[in-house]
């Protein structure tokens, strides 16, 4: 038994060392997430169940769903939620529609300038939201280039209101989110053997059929990842709706911030934050179940 015991303990020591290495690799990120994300969320959720006294602006310890009930019973707030979902869905759909062909071309190109193509896709992310919004004011503003040109051509009599509308916000979020969609799709499409597409062609499938039966199902993991990423980013967009939507256009993320800073209503702000998170999560899960079920058919 002794001659077995020695190698066994050696193995156990090795296992322990490997365990320690794994802990060292995973540890820092885990600690960071726990303290900087999980803990605040737990505290915030607890706050969202508290009461708020508007006159004195004081939070009173309680255990009440009042804040959630207030949100869902006031049409002002449900309308903001509806706007947010509508904008996010539209943005995601347009990103997928515009992103797929672009991602396909980038993934399949044999060009020496492929890396330049990829850089030009990421380029919009180099420009911050504030800079972008300022730039767009010069184009889309009432005295901007677009309106000036249209007026000069006599196509319109009065300047079009493009800035500070939902359209401006949608265009703005698309510009930010498109690179994420394209890069996610591109990496997945690159992993699909070009010969598989050719095989479908040679078996008699025209391009549309090939796309539906072969390319789409094989790219589905990328499509799912890309839509999740884009949708979550759009649901939680803060800077773009704030800067391009103007004072009257409201989405959920700016509303949360507003409740915390301007109204100092932490319980209500917390409950809005949790509603936003839950709705995002539920819609993401539902959309993906739908996508995958359709693919399975």
């Amino acid at each position: 038994m002794a001659d077995i015991a020695i190698p066994y303990s050696a193995v156990a020591a090795k296992r322990r060392r490997e365990g320690l290495t794994a802990a060292a690799l995973v540890g820092p990120a885990t600690i960071f997430v726990t303290f900087c994300l999980l803990a605040p969320l737990v505290i915030l959720f607890r706050y969202s169940l508290n009461e708020f006294v508007p006159t004195t602006k004081v939070m009173v310890e309680a255990l009440t769903p009042a804040n959630y009930i207030r949100f869902f019973t006031d049409p002002y707030y449900t309308a903001i939620l509806a706007t947010t979902v509508r904008v996010a869905v539209l943005v995601t759909a347009v990103c997928l529609l515009l992103g797929f062909p672009l991602a396909y071309v980038v993934a399949r190109t044999q060009s020496r300038f492929k890396h330049l193509l990829i850089i030009s896709i990421i380029l919009p992310l180099f420009v911050g939201n504030a800079v972008r919004a300022a730039g767009w004011m010069t184009i889309f503003g009432t005295k901007g280039a677009v309106n000036a040109t249209l007026l000069w051509l006599g196509l319109i009599d009065a300047p079009l209101q493009i800035m500070f509308t939902e359209t401006a916000v949608i265009i703005g979020i698309i510009a930010v989110n498109l690179p994420f969609m394209v890069l996610t799709l591109q990496s997945v499409i690159e992993g699909i053997d070009r010969a598989v597409e050719e095989a479908a062609f040679s078996l008699g499938a025209p391009p549309g059929t090939m796309f539906r039966r072969v390319l789409w199902p094989l790219a589905l993991p990328g499509i799912v990842a890309g839509t999740i990423l884009t949708f979550i980013l759009a649901m939680n967009a803060y800077a773009t709706p704030f800067l391009l939507g103007g004072p009257r256009f409201k989405m959920m993320a700016p509303l949360v911030y507003d409740q915390f800073t301007k109204q100092a209503n932490w319980p209500f702000g917390g409950s809005i934050a949790f509603i936003l998170m839950t709705v995002t999560l539920l819609l993401t899960v539902a959309a993906n179940l739908l996508l995958q079920r359709r693919a399975a058919r």
């Binding site: 010969a195 598989v196 050719e198 095989a199 008699g204």
Partner: peptide, 27 residues
Amino acid sequence: PWKRNAGMVFQSYALFPHMTVAQNVAF
């Protein structure tokens, strides 16, 4: 290619990975 009746076997085989053997042959 989809209007020619040419059967092709590729170097990488290019089987449809998301379809069963029977679905591949039936395509």
